[in-house]
């Protein structure tokens, strides 16, 4: 668990729940006592971005690097020069929350020179309940698109199949089957199976990938 390369990039189809995973991953990483930074590289979505919960990160001494334009209301795709810190200052363990789809992944292309020098982990988050990533062919199409526009290679898969508050064990297992098929075709390992803490006990043993229990941080105002 959490023993990936220093720079972890989290990507996926929008709605895959990559931000929720990235946020939980960051908190878990910081809880091990490591100096941690989260880079919100989402220049696509205007709402529900990891920067929205900046105070919760700061409270745990996690550095938040987002747009140079402060505030949640900026839909200006401005990449802060502070992002370079994540690559230069190797005392940080880094989680990069990339925007959805190949359009969002393009922002990473800018950092190609750093990523070609230092090995990284790039995790592709899969939610089989999203209409555009329900078959292995669809998922691979997304992976190819994201690899092309980000100029980086996906190194592992994360099963995050969910239905917000209505997630059942069957959802997770159906997503797992999809991930296994993709894993076989592309030769990429399934690193994590993301499971809400309330469902962890129900997951059968022997599942590929480590169970990653999560809490929900990216809540809606009525939740």
């Amino acid at each position: 668990m959490l023993d990936e390369k220093r720079v972890r990039i989290i990507t996926g189809h929008y709605g895959s729940g990559k931000t929720e995973f990235a946020v939980n991953y960051t908190f878990a990483l910081a809880a091990t006592g490591k100096k941690t930074a989260i880079v919100d590289l989402d220049i696509v979505n205007p709402y529900f971005r990891s920067r929205e919960i900046e105070p919760a990160f700061t409270e745990k001494s996690i550095r938040v690097i987002a747009s140079s334009i402060k505030g949640p209301g900026a839909d200006i795709p401005a990449l802060s020069s502070e992002i370079n810190t994540a690559f230069h200052d190797k005392s940080y363990e880094v989680v990069i929350d990339l925007g959805g789809d190949k359009v969002g992944a393009r922002a990473l292309g800018r950092y190609h020179e750093y990523l070609s020098e230092e090995p990284y982990e790039m995790m592709f988050v899969i939610n089989a309940n999203r209409h555009e990533t329900q078959t292995p062919e669809d998922v691979i199409k997304y992976i190819n698109g994201i690899e092309e526009s980000s100029r980086q290679k996906i190194t592992s898969l994360v099963n995050n199949t969910h239905l917000c508050g209505e997630t059942q064990l069957e959802d997770i297992l159906r997503g797992q089957k999809l991930c296994e098929e993709v894993s076989q075709i592309l030769g990429l390992p399934i690193k994590y199976v993301v499971v809400h803490k309330s469902l962890v006990d129900k997951v059968p043993p022997g599942i590929q990938g480590a169970i990653f229990p999560i809490d929900i941080y990216m809540t809606k105002p009525w939740e």
């Binding site: 709605g15 979505n45 709402y47 309940n129 209505e166 809606k220």
Partner: peptide
């Protein structure tokens, strides 16, 4: 409102 457009729901 913006949330209707941006949020994910089943």
């Amino acid at each position: 409102d913006g949330m209707i457009g941006q949020m994910m729901e089943p």
